[in-house]
Simulated assay, not measured.
Amino acid sequence: MLEIVKATNAAASFNRWAGIEATQAGNGEAELRMNWRAEDMGQFAGFLHAGMISALLDTVSGYAAGTLAGRVMTSHFSVNFMSPAVGSAFVARGRVAKAGRKQVFVASELYAQPEGKGDDALKLVATGNAILVPVDELQLKPRA
């Protein structure tokens, strides 16, 4: 499953630009990692921009849901910003809370990794909740 998620991730131009890497995926769970770039990821005070936080949480939610439901699209998404996102890297984790035929509910967290520290020093900076819906290939084709 991780190889499928990695291929999906590599096909997304935004994810490639951001340097988002899929590190785990399977059984209703997924994990992403992204290194901090001060030159283009920060907001006015130098923290990771809320849009980047939201993108990481939404993406990890989709990958977690996809491990159980195949192709999905987000129908609802919310985020809670808990503290400034400051770190040398960021780790997003998502896990399916409930997977139905028409909706998949996912909870996610974003952690900041302090400079020079390992995963044991991760600090929770945001949480998210998403509802995703399974879609077939025909629904994913852009319309002219």
Rank of each mutant, 00 (worst) to 15 (best):
R93Q: 12
T23L: 10
K6E: 15
E109D: 13
G62I: 03
G128V: 02
N9P: 01
G116S: 13
I4E: 13
V106Q: 01
L2D: 01
A10W: 00
A22R: 00
D120W: 00
A107V: 10
G62N: 11
M82D: 12
P134S: 12
V106S: 08
I4M: 14
G70Y: 13
W17I: 13
H76S: 12
V96L: 01
N80S: 15
L132I: 05
S108K: 02
L68V: 11
Q103L: 15
M41E: 09
N129M: 12
R95Q: 15
R71T: 00
A121V: 02
G51V: 10
E137C: 01
G66S: 15
Q103D: 15
G100C: 07
G94W: 01
A11N: 12
A7C: 02
R93S: 09
S83M: 05
D120M: 03
Q24N: 12
S108H: 00
P134G: 08
L48Q: 12
D119N: 09
S75Y: 06
F81Y: 15
E31F: 00
I4G: 05
L122G: 08
G66K: 06
L57V: 05
R37P: 01
A130R: 05
L138S: 14
Q103T: 15
M73E: 13
S54P: 01
F47Y: 12
V96G: 05
T23H: 04
Q139H: 11
G46P: 03
E39F: 09
G28I: 04
A38F: 05
V135R: 11
A25M: 06
F44N: 11
G62V: 02
R95T: 14
Q113I: 10
A92W: 03
G70W: 12
G62C: 07
Y111H: 14
R37D: 15
I131Y: 04
T59A: 09
G62Q: 08
D136P: 04
R93L: 03
L57D: 01
A99F: 09
R101I: 10
A69Q: 04
D120R: 03
L110R: 00
R93K: 14
A30Q: 05
L57C: 07
E115G: 03
A7K: 13
L57T: 00
A89K: 07
N27G: 14
V133H: 10
G118P: 02
Q113W: 06
F47L: 11
T23G: 07
R101M: 11
S78D: 12
L48I: 10
A55D: 06
M41W: 05
L2C: 02
A112Q: 08
T23C: 04
S54H: 06
